[in-house]
Design a protein around this nucleic acid. Sequence first.
DNA 1: CCATTAAATTCAA
DNA 2: TTGAATTTAATGG
Length: 248
Amino acid sequence: MYPNNISLSNRKIISDFSCSSCDNEECLIKKNLGKLSDATFIEDKKTLKCKKGQQFIMEGAPVNGLFFILEGTVKVFRTGINGREQIVRFAKEGEIIGHRGFGTEEYYSIGAIALQDAKLCYFSKDSLQESLIQNPKFAYDMMLFYANELNRSESKVKSISQMTVRERVIDTLLYIHRKFGDLRGFLNLPLSRREYADYAGTTEEQVIRIFSALKKEGLIVAQQKKIGISDVQVLKNEISEHNYFLDT
DNA sequence: CCATTAAATTCAA
DNA sequence: TTGAATTTAATGG
């Protein structure tokens, strides 16, 4: 389904512009730009354009650096035993992709695919490492990001092991809702039911049936890929015994 | 899990 | 812009 011959060399590199002219205030690098005075790595960065559905990190590929999302949304996944895709997270602009392989790991343990046309900033590992060492504030911001990711990931383990399928689907809906918000009553991120299933750790059919049930109960509205949550509070209540909510 | 149908999206002529 | 081809949603076995 996905091209498996993508390498850095054949990804399109679009006009590189400097971080100082970037207006993405969410970006960790942009936030610390003032402090990153002798940051040579900013010059090394490549900005790539990635088409919808294109995979830009292959599982098992060697780690050379990491990506920041400049624009667009991305799904990060891991392939399980039976070839099933487990979606680890959805990421939007300003977020970091591929950070797990950053320290000691040699190969990516995850894959990443653009959900929409996306622009990605790519920084080489070596130059980034250098500036992390020299820049405590930057390193601290990165650490917060890692801590947050770890927290979310631990909660996800719990949700998969202890919640019912229906609860996991609801949890997924709420996660998308609080992370991507809604636009005119619909979740501001179009996902296939397959993708909901891959995130919730269930099957496409289960998701479809639970959506139908929720629709009948008047808790959500659904027209194709557009899902609207009618009453966030009722859904929250249903899974409240499991949850401490996360902000990412 | 698989098969069927309906419906929607993509793509190229 | 249209319609044929492919993909996705929904339901029942």
